[in-house]
Design a protein around this nucleic acid. Structure first.
Lengths: 242, 242
DNA sequence: AAATAATTTAACCAAATGGTCAAATTTTTC
DNA sequence: GAAAAATTTGACCATTTGGTTAAATTATTT
């Protein structure tokens, strides 16, 4: 017996092992195509081919192109934001220096391992800023318990407050904390986003460019400390854990 | 008498005053739509509506969507690159400090005045990196004499060499010049590219965000100097010209 | 002002796209 | 192992898309 389309038990809600696999294959294929071509440029047929299945099966697992996109985007958005919310702004006992060191390392690692991530996330977020609200508050069927995004408490944000404290105590230079934070993130993200331009300028191939990004870790940490810390002596962050 | 399509004298090659105007109107409409939706997402009908003309006229002035896109992209690419090639890398008599100060100011100004510029350029360049070659060497019918792009001489690039000299003389900290340059650019570009995310984080409206970018000018210059210069005293760049 | 060239327009067109559906096939249940 | 449920598939559809064309309109030339 064949059920009409709308009566089909939703596979995303009742995945057995095999179903989960197929759903996962589709998701990865979709990620590849969406990251390369964006929501508008991606073709359902292309995703089906990439996944090695029939186009109709895409709609069986994910009702529409947009639903499929949402599933992909939500994961990528979280992956992009985890170092931010998890290290930079979470209310843990970390010092400013530890936050910066750990953040830069883990963020640049994420970017090396996911070269298309930031441009994809930022581009789609710019195209449709409403997604931000969906991401930050909303919890979709594809997210698990505790996956809610969280920049950390706002106002007063602990990290920003730590920086202000250090400035008041004369330990740090007089920076504008928000500008300083954006600068660190920008120093990390930009070379990933502008990869083709910079690669062209420096005449590097893909592997050489990844080395350039590896080398960048300690460089950016140095820069950040030099901007912030008054009596900074280079390389001391290399003796940290991690 | 009506000429067949291919026999029509190409308007882009023989623009009278009125033609130039119409062509310009189309170009501006196309820029708006392309910047908002990208090459794939933009619709010719949407551009025609925006320009207030018939869709067929678009093809009369620019043979195809891709030709129109190229005309738009070429201009935007150049606008994006001018501060880089014109200030940072041009072989003029500027000091490192002057280059940095002037570059950051003019670059951030460009970004404030053209909010969609960098994401548009970088996104389309990532989608189709071959355009880079077209841009750098090629000279299209839409570019005028002397418009050829030029990063400046490569290897040895004067700016990089100036930094290396300063390091050798003990005047500058021991940075990797390429990484340092990318960092300055990243500190400028990132807040423009990630506008929706940062706006959301800082809870700023459009005007407030532009103020944030204005305020950023001296902040980034401070950061750059603090990273580079050993005995840097803040605010001295404010006494420069410009 | 007639002839000619340039521009604008409405009506079309072929191809591509997201999506649907009923039938066929495979897997699970009893 | 038969019945039921879940999955996969090829064929199909309505809409949208970039692009074309011939006729109508406007500018220019002589």
């Amino acid at each position: 017996m064949v059920k009409s389309y709308s009566q089909i038990k939703q596979p995303t809600l009742t995945m057995t092992q095999e179903e989960k696999q197929t759903g996962q294959i589709i998701l990865e294929a979709a990620r590849k195509v969406f990251q390369k071509s964006g929501l508008g440029g991606a073709r359902m047929q292309q995703i089906a081919d990439e996944a090695g299945i029939n186009k109709a099966s895409l709609h069986y697992y994910y009702r529409s192109k947009d639903k499929l996109f949402q599933a992909v985007f939500q994961e990528d958005f979280r992956r992009f934001m985890i170092p931010l919310s998890g290290i930079l702004f979470r209310e843990t006992e970390l010092t400013v220096e530890e936050r910066i060191t750990t953040f830069v390392r883990s963020f640049l690692r994420t970017l090396i391992e996911n070269p298309h991530l930031p441009l994809f996330v930022i581009h789609e977020l710019t195209r449709n800023p409403d997604r931000l609200l969906d991401m930050v508050q909303g919890r979709s069927v594809h997210m698990e318990e505790g996956d809610g995004l969280d920049y950390g408490k706002r106002e007063p944000n602990l990290f920003l407050r730590q920086i202000r404290d250090g400035i008041e105590k004369g330990k740090y230079h007089k920076v504008i904390p928000e500008q300083f934070v954006i600068s660190i993130i920008g120093m990390c993200v930009y070379p990933s986003i502008a990869r083709p331009i910079i690669r062209h300028w420096l005449r590097k191939d893909d592997d050489q460019y990844n080395e350039f990004l590896e080398e960048r870790q300690s460089e950016v940490i140095d820069y950040a400390f030099r901007i912030l810390i008054k009596d900074y002596k280079p390389y001391e962050h290399q003796f940290n854990e991690f």
